[in-house]
């Protein structure tokens, strides 16, 4: 399944907040078509790394390449444009817009209508609007939410909000999708459903997934490779099985749930 093509190359990335080094010398490579897991204790720097990758934080040092192109220093919207989408740990939907509208917003970087087209309602603009709507329904269907298209995002139950956020990110047509704790707070059966969804997405859309997750069982079952962060450093990388046996990892979790 994994072609040997590097899609995302992170080399020597560091991020400091004042005197505090939240990340230092993190390097990793994600192959196209992989499901790559990122684990580590709380405060290990996983979300910080996500924020660096997606342009929300400026790097203090290092390089990030997406399909060979350097993307560090780009604005977040430019990174999305290049095919790198994400979700947030603390779900950030547009709560007062409907589910459908949320996903329609996701089409923004792949569509073009400007002020003039919108005001004149040109034929091209109407076609594009129809296509946006259709695509939004398609992605809602993919995550199993089409029945809720007209509901306000803020009124959806928790699990549906997680799925909606994924649909919205998918609508931007990413090559790689970064998911920040997508199954947090879900029960085991919901978790299994999500894992199935991820596998289907990879299979149907040649999607590469980068996954932050605390649920070690899920990570081990789902991911092709895993990196472990601790105190802002990568302490291990490899297949789930090898990482699980790594003494440094066991020490980091201090006999916690990964051991």
């Amino acid at each position: 399944m994994c072609s040997a093509k590097a899609l995302l190359e992170v080399s020597g990335v560091g991020k400091r907040f004042g005197g505090l080094a939240a990340l230092s010398e993190v390097s990793l490579t994600v192959q196209a078509g992989e499901i790559y897991g990122l684990i580590g204790p709380n405060g290990a720097g996983k979300t910080t790394l996500f924020n660096c990758l997606t342009g929300l934080y400026d790097l203090s040092e290092g390089q990030i390449r997406l399909a060979g192109e350097a993307i560090q220093g780009l604005k977040p919207h430019a990174i999305v444009q290049r095919g790198f989408a994400r979700t947030f740990q603390n779900i950030r939907l547009f709560a007062n817009m409907t589910a459908l509208e949320n996903v329609m917003v996701g089409r923004h970087p792949r569509t073009r209508a400007g002020i003039l087209g919108s005001v004149l309602r040109t034929a091209a603009e109407r076609r594009e609007e129809a296509a946006i709507r259709e695509a939004a329904h398609f992605w809602l269907e993919r995550v199993g939410l089409n029945a809720k298209a007209r509901s306000l995002a803020g009124h959806l139950p928790y699990g549906a909000q997680r799925r909606l956020e994924i649909a919205r990110a998918l609508a931007t047509e990413p090559r790689i999708l970064a998911l920040d704790e997508p199954v947090a707070g879900m029960n085991p059966s919901e978790r299994r459903d999500m894992a199935d969804l991820f596998l289907r997405l990879r299979h149907d859309h040649q999607l590469t997934l980068l996954l932050i997750e605390h649920d070690v069982k899920l990570v081990m079952g789902l991911c092709d490779r895993v990196a472990v962060l601790d105190y802002g450093r990568k302490i291990a990388e490899g297949s789930p099985a090898s990482v699980q046996r790594d003494p440094a990892v066991i020490k980091a979790y201090l006999g916690g749930h990964a051991a």
Binding site: L56, V80, F94, A95, H108
Partner: peptide, 18 residues
């Protein structure tokens, strides 16, 4: 729609390529 998104949550809007 992009304006609404911006008003609702600027960070999420930028993460949607806006």
């Amino acid at each position: 729609r992009a304006w609404s998104a911006l008003r609702e949550d600027e960070v999420a809007a930028t993460a949607m390529g806006i």
